[in-house]
Amino acid sequence: MSSNTYYAPHGGHPSQTELLTDRAMFTEAYAVIPKGVMRDIVTSHLPFWDKTRLWVLARPLTGFAETFSQYIMEVAPGGGSEKPEQDPNAEGVLFVVEGEIELTLQGTLHVLKTGGYAFIPPGTNWQLRNRHKDAARFHWVRKHYEAVDGVPLPEAFVTNEQDIEPIPMPGTEGRWVTTRFVDTSDMRHDMHVNIVTFQPGGVIPFAETHVMEHGLYVLEGKAVYRLNQDWVEVEAGDFMWLRAFCPQACYAGGPSRFRYLLYKDVNRHMKLTLNAPR
């Protein structure tokens, strides 16, 4: 499989001569956070993380998407954390888009390079450090795990997308494929974080309308994306945030392939009481 490149923000600040007009939008059904929004002034910091800043792309909001948060972490050389997660109920996925990190999972050291992927179950003992000479940037997707009596916790694992064969969608002749890091029939998992790839001309040929919430970070290329009633142009570095039942479709016009990191909540009954704990 050929090597992949991913867009990662580097911050900075626009000059006073630039136009204010941008593609950022927040509606009742979806949000678009374009790459130009990810500047120094909108970064955040976390307790127990050294030499680290982050862009918060999504957080649970009442009346919008409620199941997950997503960060882009930027860890400077020598930075990291010995206590990265303070929520014992939080599961997480890390996906490296630039640089290299050392991840220690339950005492075992793993080196994650670009394309590296880690699933971290709730309650796991883990640490992270950047011992490389350059900054490391990675996505961190977090969700409260929904335990089910009789279903065991999923196990931690580390891999790289280069080592996983993408699965073509039926009838697309390979124009639309998904890199799945977890078996869809594995009921231990209540979220999937996959990579979706469209070749130029590939489409989602109907308006998907479903219960799953989505976070979509464009890793590579550009496309027009149908979000509710709107067609929106998106490119590498943009983030789309969709609440449940927001109609969605896609047309990848090229000239290169279009790829995104996709979050969705799966495999659990619907809560029948509003604001019930997850």
Rank of each mutant, 00 (worst) to 15 (best):
V111W: 06
N194R: 05
S185M: 12
G201M: 09
M73S: 00
D50G: 10
A223L: 08
P9Y: 00
W231E: 14
H132E: 13
D190E: 06
F157M: 10
V75Q: 00
L219K: 04
G63F: 08
V193H: 04
E155N: 15
D186A: 12
G79E: 03
Y117R: 07
P60A: 11
T159G: 11
V75N: 00
E91S: 12
P34N: 07
M73I: 07
P200T: 02
A24K: 08
M38P: 05
L274M: 08
P122R: 00
G115C: 03
F245P: 03
F64L: 05
V182L: 13
G254V: 10
W49D: 04
V151A: 09
E66F: 08
G79P: 01
K143M: 08
G123E: 08
G99D: 00
N89M: 13
T104L: 07
E91P: 02
T5S: 15
K133T: 08
G123P: 04
T21L: 13
N130T: 01
P166Q: 01
F258A: 11
R23V: 02
G150H: 11
V177K: 05
A8D: 03
A249K: 09
S81W: 03
V111M: 14
F26I: 07
E161Y: 07
R257M: 07
H214C: 09
A29E: 08
Q162H: 15
G80F: 08
A76M: 12
E18V: 15
L216H: 05
E233Q: 12
V97E: 03
D183L: 11
W241V: 05
G92E: 14
V182G: 05
N194H: 14
N275D: 15
A135W: 00
H132Y: 10
V182C: 12
T5N: 14
D186N: 15
T43N: 01
M240K: 01
H45R: 14
V56I: 02
R23N: 13
A58E: 03
R175D: 09
S185R: 10
P166Y: 04
G36V: 04
D149L: 15
M191K: 07
A135T: 13
E161H: 15
H214L: 01
D190P: 02
Q127H: 06
G79T: 06
C250N: 06
P60D: 12
Y260F: 14
S15R: 04
A29C: 02
N194I: 13
A135V: 06
N4E: 13
L227G: 07
V218C: 08
D186L: 03
I120S: 01
Y260L: 02
